[in-house]
């Protein structure tokens, strides 16, 4: 049942799909979601040193029978490319990449532009599907169907929190 808080809807949708391992490199958009999962003992939350580590941890969790999500910025997406290309994709390991995109609407930092705008074409080139949440109404269906798609297709999916929904990660 959708709530009045889209962040809670994200957490509820992950939980309903048994996504119990959460690995993250947080930002201002993701931090409230991290707080919600940390407050719920259903989730095992792991703070990473670098996003790439999360691909390894979620692969190990999957081998051990647990589903997971990696919470990251578009900048962090750049840090996981080889782990996606040589581990998650060829071994057919599914998980959710919950993405906080930079470089678009509400951006304040020019260096976030290049990779932020490149995520769709990089994911396309890797054969990884990406779905965007731009309104609170999008959230329950994108989280649920997107997560299910990852496990049907046995590869990661990107579920992107549009800055139109979040207001962006800008600090000014």
């Amino acid at each position: 049942m959708p709530t009045s808080d889209w962040r809670q809807d994200i957490v509820d949708g992950l939980k309903a799909n048994n996504i119990c391992t959460i690995a993250h490199v947080s930002d201002r958009v993701l931090a409230p979601i991290v707080r919600l999962v940390e407050a719920d003992s259903f989730f095992r939350v792991i703070t990473l040193t670098r996003e790439e580590e999360g691909v390894g941890i979620l692969t190990g969790a999957y081998l051990g029978g647990r589903r997971g999500a990696l919470l990251l910025q578009s900048s962090g997406f750049g840090n996981i490319l080889n782990a996606l290309g040589s581990l998650a994709i060829p071994y057919q390991v599914p998980f959710v990449l919950l993405l906080s995109p930079r470089g678009g609407f509400a951006e304040h930092n020019v260096v976030q532009l290049a990779l932020g705008k490149a995520v769709p074409s990089i994911s396309e080139a890797l054969g990884i599907q990406m779905f965007e949440m731009t309104t609170p109404e999008d959230v329950p269906v994108v989280i649920d169907k997107g997560t299910k798609l990852a496990y049907v297709t046995r590869r990661p999916v990107i579920l992107s929190i549009s800055t139109r929904l979040s207001g962006g990660a800008a600090n000014r």
Binding site: G56, I57, L58, G60, A61, G65, L87, P90
Partner: peptide, 17 residues
């Protein structure tokens, strides 16, 4: 077969699971 550096994270995720 690739993913240099990921063996310890894989083992960590597995050990927790």
């Amino acid at each position: 077969l690739g993913s240099m550096g990921m063996a310890i994270p894989i083992a960590l995720g597995l050990a927790l699971a």
